[in-house]
Design a protein around this nucleic acid. Sequence first.
DNA 1: CGTAGTATTGAAACGGATCAATATCTGTGG
DNA 2: CCACAGATATTGATCCGTTTCAATACTACG
Lengths: 244, 244
Amino acid sequence: MAQTADPRGLPSPDLPSLKGVRLMDVEGNGPIRLLSARQQQQVAAIAQRVQFPRRTVMYHEHARAEFIYIISRGIIKTYRNLPSGRRRVLAFWFPEDIFGLAQAGRYVNTTQAVTDVTLFRLAIPTLKEALAQDASLQLQFLCKVTHELRQAQRHSIVVSRKDAVGRVAMFLRALDDQEVQRERPGVIDLPMNRADVADYLGLSAEAMSRACRKLERNGIISFTNRHSARVVDARELNRLASGA
Amino acid sequence: MAQTADPRGLPSPDLPSLKGVRLMDVEGNGPIRLLSARQQQQVAAIAQRVQFPRRTVMYHEHARAEFIYIISRGIIKTYRNLPSGRRRVLAFWFPEDIFGLAQAGRYVNTTQAVTDVTLFRLAIPTLKEALAQDASLQLQFLCKVTHELRQAQRHSIVVSRKDAVGRVAMFLRALDDQEVQRERPGVIDLPMNRADVADYLGLSAEAMSRACRKLERNGIISFTNRHSARVVDARELNRLASGA
DNA sequence: CGTAGTATTGAAACGGATCAATATCTGTGG
DNA sequence: CCACAGATATTGATCCGTTTCAATACTACG
């Protein structure tokens, strides 16, 4: 079961393609910005490119924090095990997302690869130095964290909804938005399994299943297989996702 | 109803006592750090001290973002009105918290004073300059935002619980933790009203009320008045807050 | 091809939402 | 200082949807 992180990695600090790191502006105006060439090189100099098979646990809750990661390829989930034995998935992270932020020198959530992943790994002391020396690089991090804060707020809204169908609709719509800039629109890729989504949405696996079937029966979504869905009635999906 | 922000303020940029800004470390080690004297002065130079009566709306969702705020005194709530007409309170902010982070130049939530408040108001372009010039000052902001990210994650866990009593227990425990460094422990100050807490916890006002009464009947909490409670059985409160 | 993990379906019970009524508090003006 | 009005909080009864428990179908991987 789920080995712990031991990189099957390429230790040579290859130039990471951080070009694509999408950034939100924290404080206002300005559109999306990208790491400058100089910043990319700066990150590359201190990053290590590593690969892990799916299900690898990158780190456990409460473990001593050593690295911060940027996803290059693949999907990561971060969760917490509750005293009740239940599991709450707090977020799924996608390429260009940053994870591994610690509190008091310890990780706060357990983090696990959903698919095979390629990551950029940055030793924290080194990163700290780099941030201290370059305010504009640090701004990229500030923007990223702010973006994650928004995500977390959206998540808390999703989870506070009462109806299972509405929650699933919001989840699918969010995924669709995220993937719209990629391949053909309307096709949603679901790298994670149903149980993970259920834990993310705060639903039982059964309620999750029933909600999906209902969306299918009502001609809103069509699940071609377990990891792929198609939006049939986008207007109705929007209505369900909004209406609550 | 709830006038919009028009500061009944002291426009002279008085030296703000930002000394107390509690900071979490983002990347690891290191304990709580404070703004250095130099940083305090730097913030003071660009901050404006303003006061507002309770219920003042600081800004509305989607409004053009002009300022970022740091709370000096009082409580702020930030919420979003859902299409259903329901209201979801995303967070309560306390002294030393920062709010007003924008996305694409617009505020994302409506923000309103719960009590009379004193704030430090920083014009965004000015702040941006200051951050660009001082990486260590920026680090304070990064830490703050990271802390708020944690809060949001905790919130999503609270809200995903099914049982009303458990949610209220978690809320009260969190408040108690926050206030423990102040006056006599065991006494919880509730500046906000029941409806706000209900919106924060994703409960109906009725369910909120019933949960509080239940905690009282079971000898766990004693509500002396609407804005103050006393923890009678801390062990049991912890059990309820944890167990889910 | 078989097996373990994953997903679906059904029946029953529990808990919160809702609607409606009542009680209590707070602040304001007399 | 008291009385009143509007806001805030409590309580009761019913309904609905999710959880839970249990059983079955499906799928992917060796």
